[in-house]
Design a protein around this nucleic acid. Sequence first.
DNA 1: CTAAAAACGTTTGACGACAAACAAAAGCCG
DNA 2: CGGCTTTTGTTTGTCGTCAAACGTTTTTAG
Lengths: 152, 152
Amino acid sequence: MSQTRAKRGVELGFLDGLIGFRLRLAQVSLFEDFERALRPFDITPTRFGALVLIEANSGLSQMQLAKAIRLDRSTLVALLDHLEGKGLVKRRPSPTDKRTNELVLTDEGRKLLTKAKRRVQEHEKRLFGKLSASDRAELKRMLEAVSTYKRL
Amino acid sequence: MSQTRAKRGVELGFLDGLIGFRLRLAQVSLFEDFERALRPFDITPTRFGALVLIEANSGLSQMQLAKAIRLDRSTLVALLDHLEGKGLVKRRPSPTDKRTNELVLTDEGRKLLTKAKRRVQEHEKRLFGKLSASDRAELKRMLEAVSTYKRL
DNA sequence: CTAAAAACGTTTGACGACAAACAAAAGCCG
DNA sequence: CGGCTTTTGTTTGTCGTCAAACGTTTTTAG
């Protein structure tokens, strides 16, 4: 019995019925593929999200960005330091509120993001291409429902 | 325009079409709720996964466990140190292969796991309860497809 | 049978994430 | 106004994770 484990594989037991477990496995695969696809750009999923959000909401504050990608604001500090260090993003002190920075993409940031988007598009196709268009829509809808569940 | 951002919310831009982004958000919510529900037991999703797998495959090795939950074997060392320190798991040197340990649950581990399972069941219901049974089956199926995608 | 290669568990180092504490600025309200 | 509270960005500490290097043991090849 025990010696056949290698052949038969490990039993999932209680985990087998849990969607949460499958969700985690899916995300591990997703991250793996994303990382490999975007390695030349030194872009992780989180960094990519930040860049896209800054592009789509030029001038937004760090808090607004943090909330939108569900990241702690303290985490964002190092992330922006990195992107700013690579010349992709700029922190511009807000003229109206001296506490906040306005985040904007540099020209170089925009240029890199354009290329990165193509890679991400391919990446999504690799991971979800097997699913039909309606399946993908369903999946997206359900994931949204999960992340907007009400606490009690 | 910019001053209405707080009201209208942040635009997702390119992120809006990405399933990967939704997947990440869903997992943030999932982890949040799981953590809150299992806090009294000091059990995280990963630890829970390890306990369940050891229960369902008593005597398996660290490598087998690491692969099954897709965790680096080095990560597992500290995790098992923790569980062993709390008296939930035991590392037993394999009699047939002196390189490996056989992982087994202690009586206390089994007892705690029984209680934890109930909490996790409730947690899953909270997160996925809104979805119909067939929706949940679909979701699970699709997530499996994603995590078993072939690297080209 | 023996030398080379691979597997296993561990240690160490790097990195990304959260949480708590802080100073500065803005908002609130008597 | 003028003081208290809240918000914002940052620093520091902790934790979970991966990757690389290492010693021990097993497996494989010649």
